[in-house]
Design a protein around this nucleic acid. Structure first.
Lengths: 360, 360
DNA sequence: TTGAAAGCGCTAACAT
DNA sequence: ATGTTAGCGCTTTCAA
């Protein structure tokens, strides 16, 4: 009797996969006919095709994309770039992209830059020959570098505007304006923006809108940062904020906002009593923390789906019709982290003293 | 003057990528020599190699994995299966796997079964010819089906034990025992388990340990479910729990636990005053909700890294030495969602009446 | 050490 | 409608 591991080996049947040649031989036709049966159905006699399909089935033939790739230049692979899959916003986006890709018969290659433009660039360049198109979910790369990649493969960018490259963006300006108006309606006269990554396009748009709209409606605006777009980043920001506490804060995203709230609490400041806080994204956490977070909600998952739809269209040959971004609607979800501004209590017993009003 | 879009086309320079043939011609050598220069350095004269490398550099040659794949059977692709990337536990695991894969020169193909065994199976079969190995982060497939795939490609499974397939598991039994002991120390005499997906291996292990260890230490145990492993699943579970509120609950994971807490609150039950709740995973949310969640913490990211390390070893030819799972340590993080058991108040004024003690 | 040639699994242009 | 023959980009015998 053979040693057992030999038996194991035999049992495992490491038979190698069936190819079109095997099928062709079994069916008594040329390999090309088998190929056509699967790649160009209709270009082969219905009966022949049926017979071939049957035999292929019996033999357990499965078309091998790796074989088709070199000659067709089609790998059925899409590259998705994010800066951190563990960030819930990115995860949702990834989920959407994944589902859409699968439905279209594509697989998703996940790339995670970990907030580094260098890593991002390296990954993109590695993937260029491998994928048919890119979805840039989140990018930390400068425009030019990104455009260089876009020249080589169909690309759709999210939350970013890049001349010549189709993009899907959430309506950051509207969201920011709604946030500011909301704070103003609550009596706030000044707002501090807690900035995210400097290389973030969304961060830029959000801050500029804050500044401009703030000026337009007579709100004083300030900015601290940049900070990491994480809970820890928010904690850090809070330390800085606590030195001269603002009455209202808008954070780059929910993770930062929640970090800010926790950090402020450690410093003895209450939200929303002392400070109102608003975030961006509306991740699950926003609903669950106490106080629940007022935030600008965006359809992250849908954006992933839409982006994939667009790259696929480009892959099929569609040229981006217009250079304008697809704008996805946002919604300000008012929750518990924002409240009426309390006047500065110089002496609680004496009531309030209005300290605002100085021109900027 | 030409229409602008024509100019654009010209500017775009859709030059196609340089191949080894281009380099070979420029260097005056045979394509095979160029190939060797990159694939088998050392098998070519040092000077020649250097010259070729230089010319390749100038021409902008980049080895194309798609070309190498058919003949080498190496795609540099790894498949990662999860049941829902948007689940923070899965996202962390994905992050770990992604980083480890990139560092090893591999790309990660993300597959998301959306909690469906059918979709999972279809995805796995599609990927078999494409990837060099699989990391099954989360599976809803039956053992046999999974093993069929494992026969075709190196595979490592997470949080699952599958004869003949190496696995990385968190120490669920220890975690569950710690949770039960903790509850018992707080005076609880009965614990209800809120089950996750029936097809989840972790769910099975957790429940069985609960039952067995509960019996061993004299805790009454119950089970409700299955429920979706999400916040919404937890809400649903709470509705059911609220009918006959237990004093202590252990949920399949943190998402469910947080859902349970919120659902109980809607039903007028307070955590931990009326009900103690424990989760699994220790996702960020667990620290941030109020009350913060007592949970069994596991190194999700590290598990992803470890798993990738192991598949890579198998790809390089290592045969799994022993069939025993790599067990990752867990830690019970005691937070605010668990507390001393309050006796049932039949009539608050009269004090407490002890209702427990009936044998199961 | 290098080149010529065959081949990976499949597709595609060209015949028939 | 089908077979024959290249060929995709690269690797890998096999000679030289």
């Amino acid at each position: 009797m053979l040693p057992s591991r030999y038996c194991d080996r035999v049992t495992e049947q490491p038979r190698q996969p069936v190819t079109i040649y095997d099928v062709a031989k079994a069916a008594g036709v040329a390999p090309s006919t088998v190929s056509r049966t699967f790649a160009r159905p209709g270009r082969v006699n219905a009966e022949t095709a049926e017979r071939i399909r049957q035999i292929a089935q019996q033999l357990g033939y499965r078309a091998n994309p790796v074989g088709q790739a070199p000659s067709t230049n089609r790998t059925h692979l899409l590259g998705l770039m994010v800066a951190d899959v563990a960030n819930p916003f990115h995860a949702q986006l990834t989920r959407g992209a994944q589902v859409a890709a699968t439905e279209a018969g594509y697989e998703l290659l996940l790339a995670d830059s970990r907030e580094s433009a260098l890593r991002e660039r390296a990954a993109l360049e590695r993937l260029v020959p491998v994928v048919e198109g890119f979805i840039i979910g989140v990018s930390r790369m400068p425009d030019n570098a990104l455009r260089t990649i876009a020249k080589q493969r169909p690309m759709v960018v999210l939350n970013r505007e890049l001349r010549g490259v189709p993009s899907v963006v959430m309506d950051n300006p509207s969201g920011m304006r709604a946030a500011l108006d909301h704070l103003q309606a609550l009596g706030h006269e000044s707002v501090t923006y807690v900035a995210g990554p400097e290389a973030s396009y969304a961060d830029g748009v959000r801050f500029r809108t804050l500044r401009d709209h703030g000026a337009a409606v007579g709100l004083h605006t300030h900015r601290v940062g940049p900070f990491l777009p994480t809970f820890e980043g928010g904690l850090k920001a809070a330390e800085q904020l606590a030195e001269r506490p603002p009455t209202a804060v808008i954070a780059y995203n929910d993770l930062v906002a929640v970090g800010v709230i926790n950090g402020l609490r450690r410093a003895g400041l209450k939200v929303p009593e002392h400070v109102s806080v608003i975030g961006f994204d509306d991740i699950l956490i926003a609903r669950l923390v106490t106080p629940s977070l007022t935030t600008v909600s965006s359809p992250s998952r849908q954006m992933g789906i839409t982006a994939v739809g667009n790259v696929l269209a480009m892959i099929k040959g569609a040229r981006p019709a217009n250079t304008e971004a697809m704008v996805m609607p946002v919604q300000l979800k008012v929750r518990e982290s924002t409240g009426q501004r309390r006047r500065k209590r110089v002496s609680p017993a004496l009531g309030t003293i209005i300290v605002s009003g100085s021109s900027s």
